[in-house]
Amino acid sequence: MVTSYIPLNLDECLKILSDKQVRIVAGGTDMLIQNRSHTSMPIGFKSDVCYISNIEELKKIYEDETFVYIGSVCSLEAIMESELVPELLKNTILEMASPAIRHTATLAGNIGNASPAGDSLVPLYLLDALVEKRSIKGVSKVALSDFITGVRKIDLEKDELITKVIIPKISFTKSYFKKVGPRLSDAISKLSFAGAYKLENDLVKDIRIAFGSVNVTVVRRRDLEERLIGKTKDEVKKMVSEIVDWYEEFIKPIDDQRSNKEYRKSISLKLLRSFIENIE
């Protein structure tokens, strides 16, 4: 039997992480399923585990002038109900899993799981979200796009814990998330798309585009976005085919039991096209 640690506060938790070799479990909605063994048997974890869902300090959502801070143990449902959280993220969460799962699953867990199909990652990349990590040695912040390094790979030391997800406050003229799943709820994405822009006097001040489930991690290309900034919206709309071409090479989906690469690629690019064409 593996050893389970159930710290009740952050200090206790960091101490465990520093002293022991453990896997972190938050809501457990990924960890339990991935390590499932059999009915009436304990979860088949391969190492000791540390359950963090009882750490009250990590259940807060608050803001300052520039950021919204989401404690890493907040449930998805709590995040969806908070007034501080950007609509784009809330709309995304509403399309994730089901009420029962959202009551226990966490945002940090979706990040920690680092699945190419992790839905929240798409708006979080788009919003330039940061991850706050903490260990007994101290605290640091990294951009989410640096934190996730590959399929199920994250930049986290064994003694570190994600303590917050930090979202810059940005205002957009419009933001949009589209999940394409095999059915309308309670399903893993075949692909997903998020787009947002800010217009001032018809000039594009900011534009952001992100794709999920079509590469090892979320596809977001700041270099391509920058090419559009400063142009008028009509100029950008006229460039639509060109823009679609730019992104083409970065959309590299796979075939699996949920869909095929032709569909994933083609629809991703269609959603991009439709997003650009509908800039208003």
Binding site: R183, S185, D186, I188, Q257
Partner: peptide, 25 residues
């Protein structure tokens, strides 16, 4: 509802991958 086999192995082998309708559908 999509179910296929690959070399005799059913690819949609759980309720996550074998898609039956939910109330939303």
């Amino acid at each position: 509802e999509v179910m296929e086999h690959k070399q005799g192995k059913i690819m949609q082998k759980n309720m996550t991958d074998y898609i039956i309708p939910t109330a939303m559908d």
